[in-house]
Design a protein around this nucleic acid. Structure first.
Lengths: 338, 338
DNA sequence: CCTGGCACTCGTCAGTTTCGAGTGCCAGCG
DNA sequence: CGCTGGCACTCGAAACTGACGAGTGCCAGG
């Protein structure tokens, strides 16, 4: 275990490096922080920290920079979450309040998050699988063609066009619509399947195949994971660290364009706790020099989706974590109101 | 007017510069193109072209590069639209065919366009103002709260939550829904307003304020221009010309994040013809060294929205124009089928 | 265990030189 | 009159150089 002072040195290194974006040396450290010891002592501590893998030097005779492991220790043990100022909180609330529909909420959230953290923001649409049904609508487009519209309690709307095996009369459709809504309205998505299981049985044998198709499509829509949509913003912030990343920016942009990667980025953890993934902890190369701060948000107690930011490993973790958490909370509030 | 050969020289310069991304000199030109004259003659021609403003040299004793004016002439007079190969066409069709809903069509189109042109792709959602109504749905969320869902013939779905001045009964809602649909289904958006003008009169006086609110919201939704959504993709392609644009990439990324800018980018021209805006022809600085190739697409004859790409002024115009046009056509087909 | 001193490393920066692609101009030729 | 080859000139890119200094590791002494 590292001594108290060595941890303090590590913290100082991280803070200085995040601020100046330049390798930090022993002398500068003692000048900017009142560690109470001389540069030579700090040098010894640094040697130990380097041996343990918490810091590294880009080349001989340059200052030290934190490694991923160093940041990890910093985040876990040395830093808290920095709460936002009152003014910032108010700005967030004002910005989110004008939203008119779900798309707008998500769009505003993305812009806001990018602006506040000055990094790339990622917001997942409220997940289908964790929300519940507000209404199911069926429309007849053509004799054998039906449009299914599904509205969730989070305001999300999904539609599907269904080609049925045979013609479906208006009365049948109305009947099915009524039964469906009485059975599933208010249900969580996971509860829907058993409730519609044998629903086709109540219909005329001629209509059963078509009804079955509609029900199957409904269930399919519910579990469709790949349709999890994600919105991204603030990509321009990537250019803020162009000085050492003229090359690295490309793989990052590429990675951010893959829906799948983004989804994974936001993390597998289902609960609402905040996750910080640092550098190589990200499975995806190209994101090896970036960190991700993500947290769940939701209208109630439970998280229905995630949001977060992607930035350089050299980021202001306490501030970013504070901002992400605050935004998630306010979005949750807005969702709960609508 | 420039002589035939000088135009030929300009064409050669544009082609070479697009290919090599380096200023092209007189000697290289004569070697790579069989112009039938010596470098010295080409030099004279170049001097004339430069005087006329079609080309410029970055610094003394370097080759020439085309100016915006030069590209303009090239696009207008010297180049056609390069049709795609059969394989490319087939790839496009295959890629678009698997789409399940409108979001998916747009998402696939963006990816496809970015991939084919290797540039930044921009696709506008089918515009509300130019499509027609397929169905209007009204749902009661709470006694005085109604959700309006509007479905267009292009498959787009808009929803609004309406707070009414008083409670609205289910029967009133059903009545209104039925009347609305019988009156406006199939109408173009511009025809809707006169048709619902006095519709509130047919209702019980107690309900009229609420009905009026719903109708007003419907009309508002129809004309809401700012809701024109746009999807963007292929930003990673911006890094392909990092060597001379390490700085310029930022303003471009910033510009591309502004919905308003993107909308304007796609052009004011309402018809389906292709527009090419080169360099400074773009109103927005930051896009001064980019060109935009845009074209309308639609399910029928008329364009319902636009799509296009943003790339460096130094782009392969014939190829890009061909790709953009081809993608627009296939998207139109797909939309017409659904 | 901390501290001051000291020799050493090595990247950065500014100044200088070289190199060569490309130009403009001119005199001569068809 | 237009094309061509030759020639002097310009000027950016790249390579080289040396001084500078930040930062290090090590050691002897408190």
């Amino acid at each position: 275990m590292l001594s108290e002072r060595r941890l303090e040195v590590l913290r100082a290194i991280v803070q200085d490096y995040v601020g100046t974006e330049e390798p930090v040396g022993s002398k500068a450290l003692t000048e900017r922080h009142s560690l109470g010891v001389s540069p030579a002592t700090v040098r010894n501590d640094m040697a130990v920290l380097e041996e343990e893998g918490y810091i590294a030097q880009p080349h001989t005779s340059a200052g030290r920079i934190p490694t991923d492991k160093g940041y990890r220790l910093f985040v876990d043990k040395l830093a808290g979450v920095k709460p936002l100022s009152g003014a910032e909180r108010r700005a967030i609330q004002n910005f989110l309040e004008g939203a008119v529909d779900l798309d707008d909420v998500v769009a505003r959230t993305v812009r806001l998050l990018a602006q506040v953290t000055r990094q790339v923001a990622v917001v997942q649409y409220p997940s289908l699988t964790r929300s519940s049904v507000r209404h199911v609508e069926l429309l007849s487009l053509a004799p054998a063609r039906v449009m299914l519209v599904l509205i969730t309690d989070t305001g999300r709307v999904e539609q599907r066009i269904i080609d049925c095996p045979g013609p479906v009369g208006e009365t049948v459709l109305a009947d099915l619509r009524a039964r469906l809504n009485s059975r599933v309205t208010g249900s969580r998505f996971s509860e829907v399947a058993p409730r519609v299981q044998d629903m086709a049985d109540g219909f005329d044998p001629d209509d059963r195949p078509s009804v079955g198709t509609v029900l199957a499509t409904l269930l399919e829509t519910l579990v469709e994971e790949k349709e999890e949509r994600i919105m991204l913003g603030g990509a321009a912030n990537l250019t803020r660290f162009h000085h050492d990343f003229p090359l690295t920016i490309r793989p990052v942009l590429e990675a951010l364009e893959e829906q799948m990667v983004l989804l994974k980025l936001l993390g597998e953890t289902a609960d609402g706790t905040m996750t910080v993934r640092i550098g190589h902890e990200n499975f995806h190369e190209g994101l090896n020099s970036t960190s991700v701060v993500a947290v769940g948000y939701g209208s109630g107690d439970e998280a229905v989706a995630k949001l977060g930011v992607v930035g350089p490993t050299r980021m202001d973790y306490p501030g970013t974590m504070g901002a992400v958490r605050a935004v998630a909370r306010y979005v949750g509030q807005i969702l709960a109101e609508s």
